Amino acid sequence: MTKNLTCFVVCLFVSWMVAAQKRAYEHINDLSYLEQADESGDAYRSERCKLDVYYPKDTLNTSAIVWFHGGGLEFGEKHIPYGLREKGVIVVTVNYRLYPKVQHPSYIEDAAAAVAWTFQNIEKYNGNPKKIFVTGHSAGGYLASMVGLDTTYLAKHDIDADDIAGLIPFSGHTITHFTVRKEMGIAGTRPLIDRYAPLYHVRQDAPPILLITGNRELELLGRYEENAYFYRMMKVVGHPDIELMELDGYGHDMVYPAIPLLLDFVVQRSKEPQQ
Results as ranks from 00 to 15, higher is better:
M17T: 01
L51H: 11
V10Q: 14
I65D: 05
H177R: 11
L220H: 08
M234G: 02
K57E: 12
A24V: 14
T152W: 12
H69F: 12
I159K: 01
G83K: 03
M233L: 09
W117T: 05
Q36W: 01
V18Q: 05
T174D: 09
G127Q: 10
E243L: 02
T179A: 14
Y54Q: 13
E183P: 00
G140Y: 10
K101R: 15
P198K: 11
I28F: 02
I242Y: 07
E77P: 00
L192I: 11
I212T: 14
Y96I: 05
A187V: 00
E219R: 05
V102W: 08
A258F: 06
S15A: 15
A139K: 11
G83D: 03
F13V: 04
M234C: 01
I90G: 09
V115F: 04
L34N: 15
Q103Y: 09
T93S: 15
G172Y: 08
F119W: 08
S15P: 02
E217V: 06
I80C: 07
Y196G: 06
V66M: 12
Y55N: 10
V9L: 07
D58M: 04
M184T: 00
H239S: 02
W16G: 10
L84F: 02
L221A: 02
L263V: 02
C7T: 13
R195N: 15
E47W: 03
T59W: 12
P191A: 05
Y231E: 00
A161V: 04
I132T: 09
V267G: 04
R190Y: 03
I80P: 08
V18A: 09
Q274C: 01
G83R: 11
V91M: 08
A161Y: 06
L210Q: 01
W117S: 12
T2I: 10
V89Y: 14
E183C: 13
L60T: 11
E77R: 14
D38Y: 08
K235R: 14
P129K: 10
K101E: 09
L210I: 00
K271M: 13
Q120G: 06
P257L: 03
A37W: 02
P207S: 05
D205Q: 11
V9P: 04
K156G: 15
E74Y: 00
S145T: 08
T6G: 10
G185N: 01
W67L: 11
G188H: 03
K22C: 14
K235P: 01
D163V: 00
G70A: 13
L34K: 13
I122L: 07
K22N: 09
P273M: 02
A187D: 08
P81S: 13
P105N: 07
K3M: 13
D163I: 02
D52L: 14
R23P: 08
T174S: 14
I175M: 04
H157Y: 15
S40C: 03
L210F: 11
T176E: 08
G188N: 13
V147A: 14
Y33S: 08
D30R: 13
A113C: 06
Y107E: 07
P260Y: 13
E74L: 12
S46T: 11
L5G: 07
H201V: 09
A139N: 15
V89T: 07
H252S: 12
R216D: 06
G76V: 04
H201Y: 15
Y200H: 15
V53Q: 12
F68P: 12
H79I: 10
M146K: 10
R48G: 13
L218H: 10
C49W: 03
T135Q: 07
F170N: 13
V14L: 15
M245C: 01
P169E: 10
C7K: 14
P208Y: 03
Y250T: 01
